[in-house]
Design a protein around this nucleic acid. Sequence first.
DNA 1: AAAAAAAGCGACTGATCGCTTTTTTTATGA
DNA 2: TCATAAAAAAAGCGATCAGTCGCTTTTTTT
Lengths: 208, 208
Amino acid sequence: MPTAAALNEPQQARAIETRRKLLTAARDALMECGYHGATTTEVARRAGVSQGALFRHFPSKAALLSGALEFISEDVLSRFLHDFSETLPEEDFVAAGVEAAWAALDQPQTSALLEILIASRTDPKLRELIRPASMRFYERIYTALDQFAPPFLERPRMTSLLWLMLDMMQGRFLANLAVRDEGFNRLQRELLIRVVRAQLDETAGDPC
Amino acid sequence: MPTAAALNEPQQARAIETRRKLLTAARDALMECGYHGATTTEVARRAGVSQGALFRHFPSKAALLSGALEFISEDVLSRFLHDFSETLPEEDFVAAGVEAAWAALDQPQTSALLEILIASRTDPKLRELIRPASMRFYERIYTALDQFAPPFLERPRMTSLLWLMLDMMQGRFLANLAVRDEGFNRLQRELLIRVVRAQLDETAGDPC
DNA sequence: AAAAAAAGCGACTGATCGCTTTTTTTATGA
DNA sequence: TCATAAAAAAAGCGATCAGTCGCTTTTTTT
């Protein structure tokens, strides 16, 4: 376990607080103004610190955004894990997973995540910086799944169904950017739950 | 039907050609450099015209991007309709639809569409400009579906399944930005086909 | 308390942004 | 052939970008 110092993270209370303020400011700026509006000037302004202070904590804008990605995905993940781990064994495992994932993803800060992901496609520096955080993110989802999922499914099949859910929800989030229809979202979530459940039943060896 | 003049579109051959060059240049710049790199200077450079010429054809960058969105989605749609309409009546309707949609979407230019969509979230001017084109896009998909789909499904149920497919594929496209695995993409497409087919069978009133 | 290190400040840089204005070239109808 | 308008080029506009630098203030160490 590397120390905070080895990770170039601040140790003093004031610096830790400043870093936190910068990350939430970056997240909020991305949410409200997009990548284009989330300038270093704007982020510093929102954080209530000088631009010089920003660049003391983050050597570049890419490093700031990478930090923001980690900050946000930590929150999304812990929200999902908290909701999902509350599921009782006798409850519907699939419905609980879908609803927990949707609740974790269907939030304004997911837009910030999307802004960073899209920007990283054409920004090699940012792309490299966010890679470790992204990998850790998905690793933790797999771990959670191994921990909570019923054991009758082998890993590849589970991965396939997991990604069907993730893809569909990501796609739904995108569609919601243009038109948001809460009733239709619910309908699609229920369809997804039925679909996944049907696939599980089929695989469990329950041929009519 | 409004005339080209009424739409402020150029009538002379040279101007038409310049407009076309600007639109393809905008598409390519968005694809390769993202929204951040697709500056008016860069687009004009790629098109081989002056920046002044660009602003003669498009009053703002938002108008240029809106034009690019229409230009690209026209191509995506015609590609889909062409592939899909070749489906023979006795063929698997679902598989043909999924494969045609995937072939139409799984292309570099879809990244350009995504860049515009994401940018429009926080750019009111762009958002308003692309609205009509977006609506027309989805209208034409619905029309195609009405034309080709088997008639035994009522509209709401069809819409639900259509969006399950669209969302899943959009999400897959997003996931491919980070990690692209051709084999897994195929696997997920086949899963989607099985899923939709199962839903159709169920709705068609074919209880075992 | 003195010295050293860390954190923060705010003015400033060169480059580039979207866009405008002015000038030159090109196409067209009388 | 020439007047005229459309189209493109060239030059330039103020604003803002990511990032830097010299300096001050705050905190920790000696």
